[in-house]
Simulated assay, not measured.
Amino acid sequence: MPKGRHMTPVAEKDLDPRLHDMLRYWRARCRDGRLPGRCDIDPIELKALLGNILLIDVVRQADGTLRFRYRLFGTEFIFYHGRDLTGRWLDEIANVGFRDELLALYRAVVTNREMRTLSYDYLVDGLRHRFQAVLLPLATNGCEVDIVLGCGVRIAVY
């Protein structure tokens, strides 16, 4: 990956089959141009991916800015981050470059009301663990995104 860049876009056709399944699941809940809400997502139906899921609350501030807070931080992410970030604000992430890149992605999902697909790496014990992920907008009222549903899966170790 280029220096200073933590995440790169991935074409939908190149996504891992598990992420294709997640996209099919999400798209099946999009109806009449409306986004699904959190209530449309059944964790039982996503059982195989539960450890790979993030739920990020979109918190609109009085001045119009957006803040993001982890509502759910899946166990796979806890393993790679070394701690559970459930309840933590994303703008408090210490790594400024990573934080700013992540916040820009979430803002784009919210503002454009559309998914993002990406690839990123974790370094663990000298090995690079390559992940792919999808970020999917959810909206209680079908229009205004209030949660981002993320799913990331490891695709390679080298």
Rank of each mutant, 00 (worst) to 15 (best):
1 M>A: 14
1 M>Q: 14
4 G>M: 04
4 G>Y: 11
5 R>G: 12
6 H>R: 14
8 T>F: 13
8 T>K: 14
10 V>S: 09
10 V>E: 08
11 A>C: 06
12 E>G: 09
13 K>R: 12
13 K>L: 06
16 D>V: 01
19 L>S: 00
21 D>R: 15
21 D>Q: 12
23 L>D: 02
24 R>H: 14
24 R>Q: 14
28 A>E: 13
29 R>L: 02
30 C>E: 04
31 R>M: 09
33 G>L: 13
34 R>F: 07
35 L>G: 03
37 G>W: 03
37 G>C: 01
38 R>W: 08
39 C>V: 09
40 D>W: 08
41 I>P: 00
43 P>N: 07
43 P>E: 03
43 P>Y: 08
45 E>M: 09
47 K>E: 12
48 A>F: 13
49 L>T: 07
49 L>Y: 12
49 L>C: 10
50 L>I: 04
53 I>E: 01
54 L>G: 11
55 L>P: 02
57 D>S: 11
57 D>P: 05
58 V>R: 05
59 V>A: 09
61 Q>T: 02
62 A>G: 04
63 D>T: 07
63 D>H: 03
65 T>L: 13
69 R>M: 02
70 Y>K: 03
72 L>V: 05
73 F>C: 06
73 F>W: 07
75 T>F: 03
78 I>C: 15
78 I>P: 06
81 H>R: 01
82 G>I: 01
82 G>K: 01
84 D>Y: 02
85 L>M: 14
87 G>K: 03
87 G>E: 02
88 R>Q: 11
89 W>Q: 10
89 W>Y: 11
91 D>E: 10
92 E>R: 08
93 I>D: 08
96 V>W: 10
97 G>I: 08
98 F>S: 15
98 F>I: 09
98 F>Q: 13
98 F>R: 15
99 R>T: 02
100 D>S: 11
100 D>I: 09
100 D>G: 07
101 E>R: 03
101 E>C: 08
102 L>C: 13
104 A>Y: 02
105 L>S: 13
105 L>A: 15
105 L>T: 07
105 L>E: 06
105 L>D: 14
106 Y>I: 05
107 R>K: 12
108 A>E: 09
108 A>T: 10
108 A>N: 11
108 A>C: 06
110 V>S: 07
111 T>Y: 05
113 R>H: 04
114 E>S: 15
114 E>C: 11
115 M>F: 12
115 M>K: 08
116 R>T: 03
116 R>W: 00
118 L>W: 05
119 S>Y: 11
120 Y>N: 11
125 D>V: 12
126 G>V: 00
128 R>Q: 10
131 F>D: 00
132 Q>T: 01
132 Q>I: 02
134 V>P: 01
135 L>D: 09
138 L>W: 06
138 L>V: 04
139 A>Q: 00
139 A>I: 01
140 T>E: 11
140 T>R: 14
144 E>I: 05
145 V>L: 12
145 V>I: 04
147 I>F: 15
148 V>I: 13
150 G>P: 00
150 G>R: 01
150 G>E: 00
150 G>A: 05
150 G>W: 00
150 G>Y: 02
152 G>S: 07
152 G>P: 02
153 V>R: 08
154 R>H: 09
156 A>D: 12
156 A>W: 03
157 V>C: 09
158 Y>C: 14
